[in-house]
């Protein structure tokens, strides 16, 4: 515990800790909406699609600043969403296959561009491939500042547009009927997803950043049936896993932050699946056991009423 406090007193560590926690919080919140709209793997697609955007942004400017990468990746992500929409609309290919095609096409392009950059005559290309797996420790002050501001903005937008997002998550037809700009809101939600993915890439990496969107939301779903509580819980789970990942990885050498964050989120997921109050495995077993005992008791007592009722329902079922 003592060493943990000394670690947290290190200013560099503080920055990374805060930004990872904020990152987990914001992507957990946005992940809820994408889970409810059945678009969980969209985060994965957008993360992969961001790679060529990052590469092109680097090739055009020659600098490695998070803000420029953010813009490039956001443009690539928006093109990817339009690409998926285009493929599903104009062919017989289903949504998931379209996602696969766009994902692999963009990621392949990204890898080719990375190779081109690696063999090119750029001055400071070293470390660009760190985006594949992420390296939280390599973040500098300005990156951390950008990340924190963007995360806070994301949370603020979700808070302000909570009602609208709730409606388009559950009943887009009704939202359209009462005059909400549904197409705009859907695109906005997609854009928020792109931004949260891109912000997370440097800390967690292209391949794993989708987990920050999916896993906390799925875990939160096990604890509550109300959207508000689910969003808060999901943000909390994301924040806890971000914080835990940073802390654990700082305790020893060779422990990467990104995978540890994802594994912490997965551990929370397993806890939820076991101990969730109504849908959890233990709760289900408990309910089953209680019903079984009740039935046995009524049989032992020879409760005629129950038997007659059971026989009648059986007859009804047979008819």
């Amino acid at each position: 515990m003592q060493s943990l406090w000394t670690l947290l007193n290190d200013p560099n560590m503080q920055w990374i800790f805060i930004s990872c926690t904020l990152l987990g919080l914001s992507s957990g919140i946005i992940g809820c909406f994408s889970y409810l709209r059945k678009q969980s793997l969209m985060g994965d697609t957008l993360a992969h699609a961001a790679l060529p955007g990052i590469c092109i942004a680097f090739m055009l400017t020659g600098t490695k600043s998070l803000l420029i990468f953010l813009i490039g990746a956001a443009i690539a992500g928006v093109i990817a969403t339009f690409g998926i929409g285009f493929v599903t609309r104009h062919s017989r290919i289903k949504h998931d296959a379209a996602m696969g095609i766009v994902l692999s096409g963009f990621f392949g392009l990204g890898i080719v561009l990375l190779t081109v950059i690696q063999h090119g005559s750029y001055g400071n290309q070293a470390g660009l491939d760190k985006f594949l797996f992420g390296q939280a420790a390599a973040m500098i002050g300005s990156d951390v500042l950008t990340m924190s501001i963007v995360s806070v903005l994301l949370i603020a937008v979700c808070f302000l547009l909570f009602k609208q997002f709730k409606l388009i998550s559950f009943d887009p037809g009704f939202a359209r009927g009462i005059g909400y700009p549904v197409a705009f809101l859907e695109q906005l939600l997609m854009l928020l997803m792109v931004v949260s993915v891109v912000v997370g890439i440097q800390a967690v990496g292209v391949v794993l950043v989708a987990a920050l969107l999916i896993t906390p939301a799925v875990s939160a779903r096990y604890w509550t049936h109300r959207l508000g509580a689910m969003v808060i819980l999901s943000g909390l789970f994301g924040a806890i896993s971000g914080a835990a990942g940073t802390l654990i990885s700082s305790t020893a050498a060779n422990l990467p932050t990104g995978p540890l964050t994802v594994l912490a989120a997965t551990a929370l997921f397993f806890l939820s699946i076991l101990f969730g109050p109504q849908k959890g495995l233990l709760a289900k077993q408990f309910i089953r056991l209680r019903v079984k005992r009740k039935l046995e008791q009524s049989q032992i007592r020879g409760n005629v009423k129950a038997r007659v009722a059971a026989a009648e329902t059986e007859k009804g079922a047979a008819l």
Partner: peptide, 19 residues
Amino acid sequence: QSDASIGVVFTALFALGVL
């Protein structure tokens, strides 16, 4: 949901591999 379960499982296993 099917895509959410795909997402949870493969990210967890991949993270384990990278670790």
